[in-house]
């Protein structure tokens, strides 16, 4: 590890700790009430969903519209696991961890099962087939009445997702995704986005890496779904419809396909925006779509493109600007 990277790691660690401490202080001071805390938790769940979809769509380059399906699979698996463990006397945190791991594994397996046939297709065709598979998951959940409560919803889920554990799970997901995309596996994944034929021609096992990327994305969507279930303590198959997938995709596109930090910022904006616009609920979707149309016209690559936000990058820019000003003053 060279010094620059170590410095970046330390800076990021401090920033994350500061954000955590800052929000904790505001919660205990009563500035952030339960309603705001809920929004913050939804922001973090959306961050998990968007960054994981970004792996499949932004880094791997496969447009998928079934992310809500994986989220649903994770949510139900996690909820059912937690209900089963509820009276076992285990501490809440342990129950949460076990049910989230179960959610991740099952969602990733569903991702593999769907990915192997679906990833033979590309572009629009893949989008349509993943849309179909996503809906299938939802319909299956709807019909497994004994296990999932069907259309009446699933109740009795222990409410064990708190700000603290959601925060650290989110941080962990981002860390894993960042490290994955900056490794040899990540390079192979990105090469498939850039040119699948060329990737295969330089020895990248394209099918393997496509399924790997897809499965990891699905697994983390399951984690996001699990947290959702444990925060709301109630699940209804309807919330995992096609529109949910589109909402996640919109976050990814707005933030920039191939930028994890872009997805983070976009998730914050697009979760707060609808809440802030609550009083104009009728026009909410209108405004939302209008913002996206503008974005697509003026900056089709998204807020960040494929670049990542970094404090070092900001500092470098500031230095460049300062030097330019100095040079001009001299001249």
């Amino acid at each position: 590890m060279n010094r620059k990277m170590l410095k970046n790691y330390i800076i990021n660690l401090i920033v994350v700790a500061l954000i955590y401490a800052g929000i904790k202080v505001l919660i205990s001071a009563g500035v952030i009430n339960r309603y705001y805390e809920g929004i913050i938790i939804f922001i973090m769940i959306n961050i998990i969903l968007a960054t994981s979809l970004n792996l499949a769509t932004g880094f791997l380059g496969q447009l998928t519209l079934g992310h809500a399906g994986f989220m649903a699979a994770g949510a139900y698996v996690s909820a059912i696991t937690a209900i089963a463990l509820k009276n076992s006397g285990m501490p809440n945190l342990l129950i949460l961890i076990i049910s989230l791991i179960a959610a991740a594994i099952v969602s990733a397996l569903v991702g593999i099962a769907i990915g192997i046939p679906a990833l033979r297709l590309r572009g629009d065709y893949l989008a349509i087939i993943t849309l179909g598979f996503g809906e299938m998951i939802r319909v299956i959940i709807n019909n497994l009445r004994g296990l999932t409560g069907g259309a009446q919803g699933l109740t009795g889920i222990p409410r064990i997702a708190t700000f603290d554990n959601v925060f650290w799970v989110t941080a962990l997901v981002i860390l894993v995704l960042y490290r994955l995309t900056h490794s040899r596996q990540g390079r192979a994944i990105v090469s498939i986005r850039e040119d699948e034929i060329a990737a295969e021609a330089v020895g990248v096992k394209t099918t393997y890496f496509k399924v790997l990327g897809f499965a990891i994305a699905a697994g983390f969507a399951g984690v996001g779904g699990g947290l959702y279930a444990h925060y709301l303590a109630f699940l209804d198959p309807k919330i995992f419809g096609f529109m949910r997938s589109v909402e996640i995709l919109v976050i990814v596109v707005l933030g920039g396909m191939g930028s994890l930090t872009g997805s983070i910022f976009a998730a914050i904006i697009l979760t707060i925006l609808p809440e802030a616009l609550r009083s104009f609920s009728d026009y909410r979707m209108l405004l939302y779509s209008f913002a996206l149309v503008l974005m697509m016209i003026f900056r089709p690559i998204g807020m960040f493109g494929t670049k990542e936000f970094s404090w070092q990058g900001i500092y470098d820019r500031y230095k460049m600007l300062r030097d330019a000003v100095k040079r001009r003053e001299k001249a």
């Binding site: 850039e194 040119d195 021609a201």
Partner: peptide
Amino acid sequence: FQNIRLFKDL
């Protein structure tokens, strides 16, 4: 390849 296939954005 006949028409160059690079990973252009890398």
